[in-house]
Every structure is written in structure tokens, then in C-alpha cells.
Nucleic acid binder design. Structure first.
Lengths: 347, 347
DNA sequence: CTGAAAGCGCTTACAG
DNA sequence: CTGAAAGCGCTTACAG
């Protein structure tokens, strides 16, 4: 590899000090206009590129942020990442992608690695109920923001910024929709029940069940960890092992709903005639003809953008002690998978 | 933010020099066993984390690589990225994700940014036919590897490493399959025709057409740039504007095939009874019931892993002048969207 | 305006 | 084995 030019090279060519070069190139006062122009011209001519590593060492700013997600191949995280990426680039930041594959240990290790690598802040999309990682981030005043999930540990209250979707209301709206279509026995294919997204959706669903005086059967709640294949299997178990089958499924995300769908169709049953299905997230695939999944719409990309904006604000004005807590609305998107367009609400 | 401990702090506490601390912590000879242990213990006790920025400035190695893709929300690039991420992490590298949104200017700017930020190498998944970016990478001996696409400029021959899929053969196999099922008029919904992936698939398809003595109608080749909505529109144009409609579509990727599928079904036509459809990539969604898309299988994640392995090899032994050129096989995955299971091959 | 000097946190010859 | 010194490429007081 060729040796890249440094400010020393420019200084030598321009017959000035490195100080002058630094000042000129960073548009700061302290250089004569004549020298400033000479320096800039030479820098351009020799193709000078500032070394950000050196800058970072001094300024303690790397202009990069870390993004920690569970599983980048999941369309939900992809949407999120594209929002993060967009906002970060707009603001002149680079994003380091960390994929934990749902491992808690990996999450912790990535946080250490990212900090050692000098990122200016971290976006965490992976926290669980009693997450210990964020404890130390809080104590050390390291800039971070939680996207999508919050730890539900009351001792953390008010200490951190987050942007999430209204999962409780998502769970409520899904069950309400199914109830009004006439369903009394609804299975909940839950996402990770150690995460706020998994937990709150179930809580919202249960609240709706109780409001509408539906029986709640604990056997009909299965933690499938947002993994499609697990959801597919769980639905099989429900079909095989239960005398009194549910007539509807609400799934913690569309990805799992697609798994449940495979099982339902595989059993020779029809959606929505025999079984109603509701997902969550409104991923791309949900709207395809023949899938037509009724779901809860989440503004996933926007959530990524907002979270990144908050983080960068925190980084750039470190004195600012305000915390942002943003909850985005969850909206029901009615398609064909519950039969609304076939027969409307029954009650 | 708290001030993090440095090797100077450890040196002071252990009453040794920073040199000794550096030696001990990096498991290098030059320190007594006694001091080594004392130093390591102190480092652990005070929670010392090495500053990689400082290390990078000296070693000229940041242990990070850049990944430049066109559109991270596209499932193809997500698969690719997850392979890259996996291999990089295994080898102790961090990956900086850059999403160009298909802009050439962004590609160039990302390369500059990544280099200024000091990444050790770059994975480019975005090159087009006559890419100028890689010219300077080659000249400056900066480590990079091309994944998925190669520039088709003959003057570059043999100068760079790559791992791609056999796009020519993908195009050939798709058309062969359709031909044998009895189709004579096949539309090609091409990916970006300035990219090798788009171009070679069309060339493979044309070769098959000529081998099987099918007429080639240039009106039936549309560059849809791997964008689903463009493919959807292109299919509409073909249905509206053509007297002699095609009976089959081969699409440059599954994503576009899903767009074409929307149009076909929207026209009230059936797949495969009225129109046959072949995609490419074998993304997750392709195998869902009701989609059942016949496609060409590409080992996308593996391609990401292999490419990353090659890049890191290059980075770590800079003298090694070997170039790797890897072409992965493309295999036909027969599902329901062409009617093979309904009636088998006609010829 | 101008430049010599010190320093960011680390490593690498080098002399003892 | 041991530590003082120089240096990676840059910026930031500081004295002239």
C-alpha cells in the first residue's frame, strides 16, 4: 500500500507549520488568507485525505456509532438498520453493524468491543427484561439509545432514552379485531417473553381478552422467540395436541405469522375461512397477494431514524441531560387473513 | 463520560514502565513472569480496556472492514451481509455497513470515507460494468474484494479478487427449464444491465434461446434495476402494450419476480396455468406456500462468508500476491410457479 | 498571523 | 528483564 500524504507533507510543500495546515484545512482562524488558499490547493493537488484515526485519538470522537441487533437477516431488523444507516450518514456518522444471533453473551461482548473501538455511541435493539449491560452504560454516562425494546426493570426508570412502538396497544388491537370477528379462542404465538416487545403484546392481548370477557388459556401462549421455525412447530403442537383448537392466531411478528401460516395451510385448513391469522410489523411480504396478512403496522424504519437522531444529539451535546422517551403508535392493517372483508364484524 | 484507565495508570499502580505493561498485556516476551502477572491482575481489577484507536494509529490496522451494498433492505443483501458479519466477527473484525441506495456517487464517497476512517479492507458488492472506483483501489494496492458483481472491463483482468455466482448459467438454466416446459416466448425482467449479474443472466438466457432456436424479441428484455416496483410496472406494460404476450417470465431476482407476480395475479391470470414465472436467488419468501416460486438457488450467505475470508487473508498477509476468483454454482430449484409438477417437461 | 512544543494512548526500537 | 525516548497523524494551548 502506498503511503498516504499527511499534514506534514503539506506543511513542507507549503513552507508553513503543521499548525497552519491544520487550521486551514479545518476552516479555523489563525492563518492568513494567502496561506490558507495555498494550503488548500496543495492538499487537493496531492489528494490529501485526513486521517480520522488520528483525529479520533485527539478529539475522542470517531464519528461512528454501533448498532446491535439480534438477527440482521430478519426483515424487521433490516428495516430498522436501513433507517439507522440513513440518518447516521446524513449526520456524517458511520455505522458499525453487530449481529448477536440472539445471544446475550454476544450482546455484552459487542458493547465492549464497540467501546474499545471508540464508537461515539451505541444503539441497542436487543435488550431484555433485566438487562445488565445498560446498567454500566448508564453509570459511565456512555451515550446510548434503546430502539424497539426497553428493559422492564423499574430501577432503571428515567435513566435512558428510547424509541419504541406501542406493543401493548398492538396486542390489544389484534385481539379486539379477532374478538369482533367472532373469535373466542385465540392462540398467542409470542415473541421472546423476556423482551418488552414480546411481553407487552401478550399483556395487551390479555387485557383485551379480559375486557371482552374471553377465557384465557395459558396453554395458548407460546414463546417462540421471533423465530419462524419455532412458530411453525408451536402451531403444529397446538393442532396435534389440543382437543379444543383455537380459531385464531395472533403472532408477535409477521415472520412468525408466516410460519404459522405454513402449518395452517399444511393441515389443509384455509385462511381465513377456517383459521384467522394476525401478524405484527407489516413487513414487505405481508402485503403480497395470496399472503394478504392482517397485521399491526409499525413504522420500523422511522423508528430507526428517530433513535439515531436522538443518539447523535446526545453525543454532540454531552451536557444536555434531557431524556427522550418516544412511543410510536401501532395501527391495525386489515387484509384478508381474518375474514373482515368476507363478513365484517360480528360484534 | 468517565475517564477510562490507560496503560499509564496501570504502569503507575504496578510501578513499572508503560513498555512493560504493553508487553505483558500483549503476551509478548520482555517482562518477568512476576511483573506480567502483577500487571494483568491490575489491568483486570481496574477494568482496563485497550484503546483500539491508539493501537490503530500505530499498527495501521483498525481490525475493521467496510461493506458497501446497494440496498440493505433487499433480502439478498441482508443474506450477504449476515455472511460477511459472521465471518468477520469470527476473525476479530468489525464491519462498517454502507448502504448506497444504488447511487454511484455514494459508492465513491463511501470508499473515500471508509479509507479515511481507516478500515483495513473493503467489500464491494455494488460495482458496475465500467466501474472507476476499483481502478484507484488497484493502483494503491488497497485490499478489497468484489462480492457478487465484477466489472466487465477487460483491462482489469486478473487484478482483483472476487467471489460471484454463476449468473450466465443461472440465466441459461432458467430459460432451459421454461423451454422444456413448452414456452416459446419468454420475457426477461432483467436486473441492472450495467452490472455483471444483470448482464450475464441475460446473456445466459439468450444463449439458451439460441441453442433451443427460440426467437429473441428485444422488446421482451426490460432493465428493472432489481427494484420490485419497476418489475411490477414493466410487467404491466408488457400485458397492456403487447399483442403477442409472453407466456413466461424470467426475473433477475426473486424480489422482482414477486413484483411481476403481483401484476400477473392482478390481471386475473393464474400461475402457472396461464403464466410461468422464474426468479433468482431463492430468498426466504420464495418457498412460502402460495408463493412457491421456482428459482435459481444462490448460496448468498456463503458467498458473503467466502468473500470476507478472502479479504481478511489479503489484509493479514500483504505480501501474498495470489488472487482468488471464485464462481459458485447456480442450481435450479423447481417449485410450483412453472407447472413442472402439473405436467412435467413437454420437450 | 506564525510555529515550536506537548499530547491523545499506544508500540517499537534501543540502550542499560 | 527494564525503562526512557521517539513516533503514529493530528490538534491545541502557548509564546513570539
Amino acid at each position: 500500500m502506498l503511503q498516504k500524504p499527511t499534514i506534514k507533507d503539506i506543511a513542507r510543500l507549503a513552507k508553513v507549520s503543521s499548525t497552519a495546515v491544520s487550521m486551514a484545512l479545518n476552516d479555523r482562524s489563525g492563518v492568513s488568507e494567502k496561506n490558507r488558499e495555498k494550503i488548500k490547493k496543495i492538499a487537493k493537488d496531492i489528494g490529501y485525505q485526513p486521517n480520522y484515526i488520528a483525529k479520533a485519538l485527539i478529539s475522542r470522537r470517531s464519528q461512528s456509532i454501533g448498532l446491535i441487533v439480534n438477527y440482521i437477516a430478519d426483515p424487521f431488523y433490516t428495516e430498522l438498520a436501513s433507517g439507522v444507516e440513513k440518518k447516521a450518514n446524513e449526520k456524517g456518522y458511520t455505522v458499525v453493524l453487530c449481529n448477536t444471533n440472539r445471544s446475550r453473551a454476544a450482546e455484552k461482548s459487542f458493547i465492549d468491543v464497540l467501546r474499545a473501538r471508540g464508537v461515539d455511541g451505541i444503539i441497542l435493539a436487543t435488550v431484555e427484561k433485566d438487562d445488565v449491560c445498560i446498567q454500566s452504560l448508564i453509570e459511565e454516562h456512555f451515550p446510548f439509545v434503546l430502539i424497539n425494546r426497553i428493559p422492564m426493570n423499574p430501577s432503571f426508570t428515567n435513566k435512558f432514552d428510547f424509541v419504541v412502538q406501542d406493543n401493548f396497544s398492538a396486542g390489544y388491537k389484534a385481539v379486539e379485531h379477532l374478538y369482533r370477528l367472532g373469535h373466542d379462542r385465540i392462540a398467542l404465538i409470542a415473541g421472546n417473553l423476556k423482551s418488552s416487545t414480546g411481553l407487552l403484546k401478550v399483556e395487551g392481548s390479555r387485557k383485551a381478552m379480559s375486557d371482552f370477557r374471553l377465557d384465557f388459556d395459558p396453554q395458548l401462549v407460546v414463546d417462540c422467540g421471533y423465530i419462524r421455525s419455532k412458530a411453525l412447530e408451536a402451531a403444529k403442537q397446538i393442532f396435534v395436541g389440543m382437543k379444543k383448537r383455537p380459531t385464531a392466531f395472533f403472532c408477535g411478528d409477521d415472520n412468525m405469522a408466516l410460519g404459522v401460516r405454513e402449518t395452517i395451510l399444511g393441515e389443509g385448513l384455509k385462511i381465513p375461512q377456517d383459521i384467522a391469522l394476525v401478524g405484527c410489523d407489516n413487513i414487505d411480504t405481508a402485503s403480497l397477494k395470496g399472503i394478504d396478512l392482517t397485521t399491526i403496522s409499525h413504522k420500523t424504519r422511522v423508528m430507526g431514524e428517530i433513535g439515531t437522531g436522538i443518539l447523535i444529539d446526545k453525543i454532540e451535546r454531552t451536557t444536555h441531560e434531557m431524556v427522550s422517551k418516544i412511543v410510536l403508535e401501532a395501527n391495525l392493517v386489515i387484509r384478508e387473513s381474518c375474514g373482515y372483508y368476507l363478513k365484517g364484524y360480528a360484534r
